[in-house]
Simulated assay, not measured.
Amino acid sequence: MFRDIIGYVLGLVIFIIGIPFVMYLASGSPSLAQITLIQWILLILLTIFGIGLSIWSIVYMKNVGKGNPFDAFNHEVAPRTSSLMTNGPYGICRNPMLLGVFIYHFGVLIALLSLGAAIIFIIEILIMNVQVKKEEQRLRNDFGNEYIEYTKRVKRFLPF
């Protein structure tokens, strides 16, 4: 139970608060008044959709996979899933939680419209791709042919 909570808190601190804050700082800490109405609307819509997809994925992972999402570069921070999830949000793409985070952070990028925020966003995508590839190796080892067949049917990030 304690390790579950650690995983959720780390995810919240890093992905929901931390990276957007670093994007804000990298953009020169603009005044919120500088953000246009259109930017605010896009930020709100992408935040709701992105975080909603991530929460759906986390709940699905906990209920179906009996695990927690926070696994960093093959270091088990919280209990890993005990079964391969291929339905629900994981039928859309293999990493719906991360896709949701990227959608949310893209909304932040639109609101900030700065080179600094874009660089942070690109660095995040590159680092998370390395993490995902490490995780895919573990999933191949844990679930074998079932995982390999799943990767043939479902894309890594984008559902199309």
Results as ranks from 00 to 15, higher is better:
Met61Cys: 08
Pro96Gly: 05
Gly18His: 03
Phe2Met: 06
Leu37Lys: 11
Phe70Gln: 10
Ile103Gln: 08
Val132Gln: 08
Pro30Ser: 03
Ala111Tyr: 03
Leu10Arg: 06
Asp71Gly: 10
Val77Thr: 13
Ala72Phe: 15
Leu45Asp: 03
Ser82Phe: 00
Gly91Ala: 07
Met1Ile: 09
Ser114Cys: 01
Val154Asp: 09
Gln137Phe: 09
Leu43Phe: 15
Ser29Ile: 03
Val22Gly: 13
Ser27Pro: 02
Asn145Tyr: 00
Ile127Asn: 06
Leu98Lys: 08
Gly144Leu: 02
Phe15Glu: 04
Val64Thr: 14
Leu99Cys: 05
Ile58Glu: 10
Lys66Ala: 05
Ile122Glu: 01
Val22Lys: 11
Asn63Lys: 14
Ile92Thr: 04
Met23Trp: 05
Asp71His: 15
Arg94Leu: 07
Gly11Val: 03
Ser57Lys: 03
Asp71Asn: 15
Gln137Cys: 07
Lys152Tyr: 10
Met23Gly: 04
Trp40Asp: 03
Ala111Asn: 07
Ile48Asp: 05
Met61Phe: 11
Gly88Lys: 06
Leu109Ile: 06
Lys152Ala: 14
Asn63Val: 01
Trp40Val: 03
Tyr8Thr: 04
Phe143Thr: 00
Lys133Ser: 14
Ile119Arg: 04
Ile41Leu: 14
Leu98Asp: 07
Phe21Ser: 13
Ile14Glu: 04
Tyr90Lys: 12
Phe15Ile: 01
Leu37Pro: 07
Val13Lys: 06
Met128Asn: 11
Asn87Ile: 00
Asp71Cys: 13
Ile127Trp: 07
Ser29Pro: 06
Leu25Gln: 15
His105Ser: 06
Ile17His: 01
Phe49Cys: 13
Leu109Gln: 12
Leu42Met: 08
Gly67Leu: 08
Ile41Phe: 11
Ile16His: 10
Glu76Pro: 00
Glu124Ser: 11
Leu53Ala: 04
Ala78Arg: 05
